[in-house]
Design a protein around this nucleic acid. Structure first.
Length: 468
RNA sequence: UCCUCGGUAGCUCAAUGGUAGAGCAUGCGGCUGUUAACCGCAGGGUUGCAGGUUCAAGUCCUGCCCGGGGAGCCA
């Protein structure tokens, strides 16, 4: 008596006509009993936002013993006929001829996910089960949608996805604290004669870490494949305790050859608009939920985002705007200082009221690999600032001139020898090139309107917290 | 790391230094093509941890742990 298994999303999309026999498999959200001899089961399978209403008649053989004992979280397989719903709230429902319990909830009283409102802080403590809620199911689908749109965007434009290493032996970028990776026995470390830890005895024969960026590596591939990007986990051992930081996060880093900072900014704008448009097009159900329950503005903000071009301004111009705006900031603005969060927020949320790209920062506050401009005071760096979240993208044109790069490396107290292979790229067929880094999880925050980045990644890692 | 707010039933929250409470969830009963259903009854507590003050501490004090918000660092 088997019927074809359908995903609930396919049923709602009309891919199973009314009157056809189907089987769905999923988990119980709620059960409502009617003494008219029916139970209503809301079943979700993750394929879309809405659950399917399964109508279980009392005539089922296991009605008394099993159906009436179903609670939130139980796994079931239900087979029956699709029919227009007699009730309000859903167009179709499944009139069950069988409901098989695949997995019971042992102890309903202790099941953490009840059909009521939970705080996100609480749900983080049950991260293995929180994806069964409306909110976290929607986040997971939107996250996937953004990732697929990202790959599609790059693929359509001739970019290659490059799998840069996760393990690295060089603190190449100096981009913050790194996680050490070691197989040494920490209780009994090998020592050199002068008492230092002998890393020649470690797994790689020298100190090793988790990557803080794939950029330096991907530059090599860029100078052969022309258009490339990395996408993968990134690790920062910084003691950051904010709603915007994770110790393990996912970063997208495209890199384009024969390109300058303007091309980089163009790419960043097209990219963000593409992936957010995809969310609006493909996840209307989940986005409607976010707009209703999480952040009323989120859909409107995204629609605005994808249709209006970004404001572009020079760093020097941004400083002037901030000095003249009549606002007093906690941190005063002066040419040469890094922009603070309050400054960035003012620029995009109040001044421009849309995304802003700030270009050409003072060279003294930026990394060594950013290209020095002709004025010798600034580098070809850019930040994309988004209303409500702040810096979402940081990028630059890379220094392709070996002599200039060497001066910068030495000037920052770094050792050129360590960057021998990175320098090689400037010795053998160097070309102007540029790229940027996007915190993927921050993009998910922006799209969904979720307040905390820990709630847009399945199992968040933060200082003092690596459960699950 | 700094500033600030918080931690009481499975969850969300009450409780003037004086007997520990409600809603939801769960169990039982009732009612209804139901929609976070509804009505009644019941069970459910080491008040984050460790000290201290007091006749008496959920409440006051000290330290620690954990969480939220903000800042710094950044993506």
């Amino acid at each position: 008596m088997a019927a074809e298994v359908h995903r609930i999303a396919d049923i709602f999309a009309g891919r199973a006509p009314a009157g056809s026999r189907v089987t769905v498999q999923g988990w119980i959200r709620t059960r409502r009993d009617s003494k008219a001899g029916l139970s209503f089961l809301h079943v979700h399978d993750g394929s879309c936002f809405d659950p399917l209403q399964v109508v279980a008649p009392a005539a089922l053989a296991n009605y008394q013993d099993e159906v009436l004992r179903l609670t939130a979280g139980c796994a079931v397989t239900a087979t029956g006929t699709l029919a227009p719903s007699q009730g309000k709230g859903q167009a179709v429902e499944l009139l069950a001829e069988s409901v098989t319990v695949v997995g019971w909830v042992d102890d309903p009283e202790s099941y953490p996910i009840t059909p009521k409102r939970h705080t996100f802080e609480y749900l983080r403590e049950v991260a293995h089960l929180r994806v069964r809620t409306n909110t976290f199911g929607a986040v997971a689908r939107v996250r996937h949608c953004l990732a697929m749109a990202m790959h599609r965007f790059f693929h359509e434009r001739g970019f290659y996805w490059v799998h840069t290493p996760i393990l690295t032996a060089s603190d190449a970028e100096g981009a913050g604290e790194m996680f050490r990776v070691s197989t040494l026995d920490v209780a009994n470390l090998p020592r050199t004669p002068d008492g230092a830890v002998d890393f020649t005895r470690d797994f790689f024969g020298r100190p090793a870490y988790l990557t803080v960026s794939g950029q330096l590596n991907v530059e090599g591939y860029c100078l052969a494949l022309s258009r490339v990007y990395t996408f993968g986990p990134t690790f920062r051992a910084e003691n950051s305790n904010t709603s915007r930081h994770l110790s393990e996060f996912w970063m997208v880093e495209p890199e384009i050859a024969f390109a300058d900072l303007t091309a980089d900014a163009d790419l960043a704008e097209a990219f963000l608009q593409y992936i957010f448009r995809a969310v609006l097009d493909e996840r209307a159900d989940d986005m409607a939920f976010f707009a209703e329950r999480i952040d009323k503005e989120t859909v409107r903000r995204l629609e605005e985002f994808v249709k209006s071009s970004f404001v572009r301004m020079e760093y020097t111009e941004a400083v002037e705007i901030l000095k003249r705006c009549g606002r007093s900031f906690e941190f005063p603005v002066e040419w040469g200082v890094a922009l603070q969060a309050e400054h960035e927020r003012y620029l995009c949320e109040e001044h421009a009221k849309r995304p802003v790209v700030v270009l050409n920062y003072p060279k003294d506050i930026k990394a060594f690999y950013m290209r020095v401009n002709d004025d010798d005071r600034t580098v070809a760096a850019m930040d994309v600032l988004a209303p409500g979240i702040g810096e979402i993208i940081g990028g630059s044109q890379r220094e392709e001139r070996l002599e200039v790069l060497d001066r910068r490396i030495v000037g920052m107290g770094l050792d050129p020898a360590i960057y021998w292979w990175y320098r090689d790229l400037r010795r053998y067929g160097t070309v102007p090139h540029a790229g940027f880094g996007l915190g993927f999880d921050r993009a998910v925050v922006y799209a969904t309107g979720m307040a905390n980045i820990r709630d847009v990644i399945p199992f968040p890692r933060t200082p003092g917290s690596a459960d699950f």
